[in-house]
Nucleic acid binder design. Structure first.
Lengths: 255, 255
DNA sequence: CACCTTCTCCTCATTTTTGAGGATGCGGAC
DNA sequence: GTCCGCATCCTCAAAAATGAGGAGAAGGTG
């Protein structure tokens, strides 16, 4: 790629660069980059989705699109979306008309009942992937009364998308690291790994805090012997040889 | 700022953007950005320093400069460096001649015995700061047979420096988080916090792994009673009420 | 030198934890 | 209904850890 940039575009690119270095929340980053891209690419509509069921991701962010229409996308149209699966296969920024012919697209329910309702006509997408899966996408649209996107627009989106993907990848791995260090989640994982019952889980939660049998009994409202009985099965199931060992493996970030 | 970019410059800028999103090692990032900047700004020499004594930072990185001359900088010339303190006060990219007059500079030992030896003549610096202090700098130099840097070069360096600073800030806070979760460092901190002796530290290192008194004694090559004796002082010094409590506070990332 | 800290080891008593056997009642699955 | 898992409680014994009292040797400091 070899394209010149106007002063306005240069400024926006620097702003995007700074956003990607500064913003540490994936949702905020996607929204902010969306605003910059609408400006940079002179587009009207923006949406970005993440297709993982992971912890903090609340799915889509969007700009200038109708809430109720998007709710319809999430509940229905995403399942008859003819272009997104093809965009994904591109591995780079692509124009709608690179993945489906205009005539064919104009006849789909997806275009007529969903996109056209909000005025979206010319579109291009970038889908960011890493080895661990889909990281997030950038969907840029213009109204029908505008010119369609040019090769240069695709090049810009592609270059920004590449950096955007790297940034999202880092944010996700950070989130995963953080999740690994959250004690409650770690204890819950440990419990399910070893097939503990609900009550046994209650016991190790308190055990992980370093409490004595007597304290655990008081908190759970049972007798000390009951606590010991649960501990007996926990030791048996986990193979741990001592309370100290148990606490270490419950608190260890690496598993 | 409002400047246009050539195709070559645009490509380099995208490369820098991707580097800043992708590279997670501060030293590598500084080196890589240095190479890009030499290319982008058509400069000859690059150096970058971090002025903190913190953990993993091994000080300076540089390109096209003489090793022995840099050793002299670190041991001597940094203490009679007339420009760096002034650059720091600028809070933005600045040209050498914006912080000292050429005539005055040409008479300094710093210029004649250090910079001139490697051929450095025209220079500009960017110093990145955050609330917690100096994050890293970018020092760009050209030989005397070249043109000096223009306002446009300063603007480019300033914009890139801003994003560079944000990226370094995140890397540092990541490193700090990681350091907080490293068990050995945490145990060492805990030990010094509570004024433990060397031998007591040996004991809690093994204790933190969940070992029994007998195991600790075997590993340290002393009797069980000695271990218990050390444990006695550890309990006394730390105020912990039980071994389990001790293990939890040794393994807890938050203190 | 005397004094202090540290490391080493000891005893005795007490508390806590672990390991091994049980028993009872409750609720869901076959 | 019977069987099974789960939660609740029990006893008895052994092992481990805690708390309190020491003592001796090595090393550095005023």
């Amino acid at each position: 790629m070899l394209t010149t940039l106007s002063g306005r575009e240069t400024n926006l690119l620097f702003a995007i660069m700074e956003d990607m270095a500064a913003i540490r929340d994936a949702r905020k980053l996607r929204t902010q980059i969306g605003e910059r891209l609408l400006d940079l690419l002179e587009a009207d509509y923006f949406a970005s989705y993440v297709w993982t069921k992971s912890d903090g991701d609340t799915g889509g962010v969007y700009l200038n699109m109708d809430e109720s229409n998007l709710a319809a996308y999430e509940s229905h149209y995403q399942y008859c979306d003819p272009i997104t699966p093809r965009f994904r296969m591109c591995q780079r920024a692509a124009h709608v008309e690179q993945v489906i012919s205009r005539e064919q697209f104009d006849r789909t329910e997806f275009y007529n009942d969903f996109l056209a309702r909000d005025g979206l006509y010319h579109g291009m997408n970038y889908h960011a992937y890493s080895a661990s899966g889909h990281l997030g996408d950038l969907r840029i649209w213009r109204s029908g009364n505008r010119e369609t996107f040019q090769e240069r627009d695709l090049e810009l989106l592609d270059a920004i998308g590449a950096a955007f993907g790297k940034a999202l990848g880092n944010l996700r791995s950070d989130a995963e690291k953080l999740r690994d260090t959250d004690p409650r989640i770690r204890v819950a994982n440990w419990a399910s790994q070893h097939g503990l019952t609900a009550r046994e889980r209650d016991v190790i939660c308190l055990l992980a805090e370093g409490r004595r049998d007597r304290e655990i009994a008081t908190v759970l409202g049972v007798s000390v012997t009951t606590v010991r009985s649960h501990l007996k099965s926990i030791f048996q199931k986990s193979g741990a040889s001592s309370r100290a060992n148990l606490i270490v493996s419950l608190n260890a970030p690496v598993q």
